[in-house]
Design a protein around this nucleic acid. Structure first.
Lengths: 156, 156
DNA sequence: CTAGGTGCAAAAGGTTTGCGGTTAA
DNA sequence: TTAACCGCAAACCTTTTGCACCTAG
């Protein structure tokens, strides 16, 4: 039985001119069910349990469609595959370099964010992505690692 | 003849416990020479002109070493290969979704950045990456596209 | 009905690895 | 001298594509 996705799902899929298929529902359902920012392969493995016939290519296609509908965000980090999250609210991501866990991180109001960009006026920004890399609570019981950001001096 | 890299290069390589090789010098030189955030393959093509015997694997290895030394930053976007830049000063990146050009974008002081992160106290941040996607000056003569960010309302 | 979607398999990148020969220190 | 590094090729992993079949609207 397909998961009962919120009405937002049906609306968004339809308003994007896409068809409501069981595969898309299951893929979206898997993302909603466990919000741990899985990779495409992880989504595939999870959906396979409910729908053994689904293929990896279809999972990629569904994720692409869901992203186009604005239901899903694709998140990329330095290494490893893309990961996907159903939280389309403005937020950043924190990835733990030890255990790989990804957490959503709240961002300030768009107005304040816009203020900190020092971008020429005639540039149009359609999307942004803000990723933090570090060590999470579980992996750093003593908080033993220093906070080191990029150096403050320009390169030659 | 190898390019005359700034002293920072020799120092950083040596202090990292690495050897000064002509390949590393050329790879770093290529990045300094044309600061257009090339991919590994582009770096390979450029270095090949001065050093036809170099291999792509070596370019990848050199970029990895240079990154470890802190001389180079690896930049990842939604799609396409990683790109590399020799500007290790704290900055964000803007990529034009039409022509693919990447520009460095100035960021505010680290202190202000840290203030806007709403991250739990016991998380340690070692690195961050801030990427903007949009349309650059050359590709948007009329500035016809609206600024659209992520929606302001949380998902269900 | 029929355009759009699925499943399969193969291919296409991008990146890493293993190994014998080379070289910086 | 010798551990680190290079060049080559093959492997690996993620993602995309082509095509015949299927299905939502």
């Amino acid at each position: 039985m397909p998961p009962a996705n919120p009405p937002l799902y049906d609306e968004s899929i339809a308003s994007g001119g896409f068809r409501l298929t069981r595969q898309r529902r299951e893929v979206y359902g898997a993302l909603l069910e466990t919000r741990d920012h899985p990779s495409a392969v992880q989504v595939f493995t999870r959906v396979q349990k409910k729908m053994p016939s689904i293929s990896l290519a279809t999972v990629y296609n569904c994720l692409e469609t869901l992203t186009q509908c604005g239901l899903v965000r694709q998140v990329n980090f330095d290494r490893g595959p893309s990961r996907f999250c159903p939280n389309t609210y403005r937020h950043a991501h924190f990835i733990c370099t030890r255990c790989g866990v990804v957490h959503d991180v709240q961002l300030p109001e768009a107005a304040e964010l816009a203020r900190i960009w020092c971008l020429p006026d005639d540039y149009v920004v359609n999307e942004y992505e803000f990723s933090l890399r570090g060590v999470c609570r579980q992996c750093s019981p003593g908080g033993d690692e220093p906070v080191t950001l990029h150096p403050e001096k320009p390169t030659p």
